[in-house]
């Protein structure tokens, strides 16, 4: 289930994994989401940890902006996530709007100085590249926003690492350059 992992979190004691899993709050792909708690358990065994906590980081801010949802629409969707994720095996559910207070450009643009165009192009999924004529600078904005969210979550919830889909491999490999040291477990989702 886990393709490979990179372990460099400084938080190894007590021997407990606190893994973050980031998800956009849109329609609920139950089957897909249920893979992650199982993967978290596998990560615990691999690491020989005593325990594992899987924290879902539900981004309810970006979709509201990107899909022009109203606050009410977004709240309904977020509520469904909050209700369902614990049943699927997630130990904690955190809404991004609750822990990311600074949504201003100044808070996250500085990350953009550390990533090159070539690196960025590599991390875009192939599906997007085939329609590259339709891509806008918001691809960059989304990337920066996501890094901003992860940076705060790692510190706020004292996460030891992130559990991520292998399809987003380049994204999280690039993110490692920008975020404090953490573990990454790449999960096979196919």
């Amino acid at each position: 289930m886990i393709a490979y992992s990179i372990c460099e979190s400084p938080h190894t004691h007590p021997n407990v994994l606190r893994l973050g899993f980031s998800v956009w709050a849109r329609t609920l792909p139950k089957d897909y989401l249920s893979i992650y708690p199982k993967a978290a358990e596998e990560a615990r065994k691999r690491a020989g940890s005593e325990n594992v906590f899987l924290c879902a980081l539900v981004d309810d801010v970006w979709p509201m902006v990107a899909l022009s949802r109203t606050y009410r629409e977004q709240q309904n969707i977020s509520d469904r996530f909050i209700a369902l994720l614990p049943d699927l095996g997630f130990h904690e559910v955190r809404l991004v709007s609750d822990f990311v207070k600074d949504v201003t450009l100044g808070a996250y643009l500085s990350h953009a100085t550390k990533v090159t165009v070539s690196e960025f192009w590599k991390l875009l999924p192939q599906s997007k590249k085939t329609i590259s004529d339709n891509l806008t600078l918001n691809e960059i904005l989304e990337f920066l926003w996501h890094i901003h969210v992860l940076e705060i979550a790692l510190s706020e919830f004292r996460l030891t690492g992130l559990l991520v889909g292998i399809r987003s491999e380049f994204f999280y490999l690039t993110a490692r350059k920008l975020l404090p040291p953490h573990d990454v477990y790449f999960v096979n989702t196919t």
Partner: peptide, 15 residues
Amino acid sequence: MTLQEIFTIFQQINL
């Protein structure tokens, strides 16, 4: 500038 404000402008520029 908020995420919403910058999004509105960035969406006009082809990557």
